[in-house]
Design a protein around this nucleic acid. Sequence first.
DNA 1: CAATTCAATGGTAGCGCTACCATAAATCTG
DNA 2: CAGATTTATGGTAGCGCTACCATTGAATTG
Lengths: 341, 341
Amino acid sequence: MKPRSRRGGGRPTIADVARKAGVSAITVSRALREPERVSKELRRQIQHAVGELGYMPDPNARALASARADVFGVLVPSLTNNVFAEVVRGIYDSLSDGPFRIQLGDTHYSGLEEERLLHLFLSQRPAALIVSGIDQTAAARRLLVTAGCPVVQIMETGPDPIDMLVGFSHFDGGRVATQHMINTGYRRVGFLGARMDPRSQRRLAGYRAAAEGAGLFDPRLVTTTPVPSSVSLGRELFREALAKVPTLDAVFCNNDDIALGVLFECHRASIDVPGKIGITGFNDLDMMHVAYPSVTSIRTPRYEIGRNAVAMALEEIDGNRPETRVIDLGFELIPRESTAR
Amino acid sequence: MKPRSRRGGGRPTIADVARKAGVSAITVSRALREPERVSKELRRQIQHAVGELGYMPDPNARALASARADVFGVLVPSLTNNVFAEVVRGIYDSLSDGPFRIQLGDTHYSGLEEERLLHLFLSQRPAALIVSGIDQTAAARRLLVTAGCPVVQIMETGPDPIDMLVGFSHFDGGRVATQHMINTGYRRVGFLGARMDPRSQRRLAGYRAAAEGAGLFDPRLVTTTPVPSSVSLGRELFREALAKVPTLDAVFCNNDDIALGVLFECHRASIDVPGKIGITGFNDLDMMHVAYPSVTSIRTPRYEIGRNAVAMALEEIDGNRPETRVIDLGFELIPRESTAR
DNA sequence: CAATTCAATGGTAGCGCTACCATAAATCTG
DNA sequence: CAGATTTATGGTAGCGCTACCATTGAATTG
């Protein structure tokens, strides 16, 4: 009985390919990983044997032998959030033709869960790690510093990256959105925020800076909740805000879902948008330009963040340490009907 | 020089734990995987040594030695589609406290890409495979039949599962949605469809069955496109449909994004909903009940599909082959203002 | 043309873990 | 209480691959 049949299950191994091609196993290994280091002739024979046998390298054996798995670990706070879905799509698109697999983890906005997943991912010795935000716990930060692989933090900019950083300024986004409404003539501009994760906090800070700069800040204008964001929550928050401050004449929303909830509530209550209430969202999902009235929003480079993060990590893996460690992809205010009065 | 320092990097191995606990490596291995097979005393010592050293098992070595990786392979046609995001969330939630990792693949609605990813996943010897839909290519089906692990197809029901199947009937969903509008009195009920993947095709077939049953079918009422779905596309399709059939008095939309686009376009063009046009969506996203007017939709058990798929696979992994191989989770028509005339 | 470098290939020894089998001690059986 | 069975542990031999070093012959050099 062949020893190989004992376990696993008789799949062709590198030794089978080597035998068939009349070379040694290590040459097959090289032909697969660094083709240019093997003569043309052998390369051809080996390719042929691979095709004939339907050989596929075992990633587990490879990872064990080389102490390095061809895996990108990706940690996002939410899988269902549209924003991260776009980022993840950017990552997948950038990695789909290379040798890398993706290990995706959902931290549920929890620092502890992030640490747990980091431990899990690190035990695989990933090729690179992409993590969301810059507010890792001290323990998580320590893990990342000693990860032994490129680490890219995404979604934000900031002064002190663990390794590399791609994103934009949420503070500035909040500030610009708010300033836009102030410039348009709104005077009682509220802030509506769900979840209130660190990035939402910074948007709120930007809102506050703009409001204070215009002498228009009033804490009662701020309505937030730790509850996860949704369109229906947008409606609730707006009702609450209006009950608190009946003179409210505009809202900067945490994100587009909230903004949409506000828009629907205005329809339902026959509140004129933008006449009576101005609305600005955040992220500029496709639906914002279709909505009636169309909704002003901050367009954020989500897909591009994913692509840039991968590109930077790949550069570093290839040995070309990227010069710039922090990339600010910026954002864009898209004024629309909901603030056009 | 310690041989271990040659590669990898001096992380504690099972041998280190064994030495520290004064037992053999195999006993540590057992204590970790099947604690009840090791005496209480040794278990305690080993746990202590593990904690002390911060030992984490190497999943690659484990997978190589046991010819089985603790990985669930999950194949979905789109990462950004809200529907699949919910399914994936169900899968993650069900798996987050166990030993299993998740390998997520995006087929982009392509059978060829599905085959490629299947090869990739299979080379890891996953513990289970979850794939979307029942329209695999012949080659993909062959791969799945011989996968050597539980396979769960999700999203649909059907007569001939590869192994196990969890979902609901898209045909019936389309039929019920259409019948509802016919019952409500709409006579020129159109179908608006984006992407037109196999599930959309079956919803269309259900629509057609209901329309023909009432003697109301007219091919000109059907407007579809292979373009991916979006809210803005909903607007385009609706305009197109209306131009084709000015007497159109209702639309069954492929999904809620399309329905939302229709709703906005009706607002913009001052078309009364539900008076002039009735709208029914599909999936019942949160926003549908918040919209004004609120939108009738078919509520689909997306999250539950994910959870059930994992539960079935885990049962089979544990050696309890599930009796029922096909689970129909059904759906629910949620009538709302958009069809209430 | 001997000495040196280089390019192409091979041999060996693990990577960290678990399947399989062996062993020893404890428990059960009639 | 001898023999059979069970329970708890250990030893050995890989899993399939690659890092490291060795070898060979050809190309290059002064």
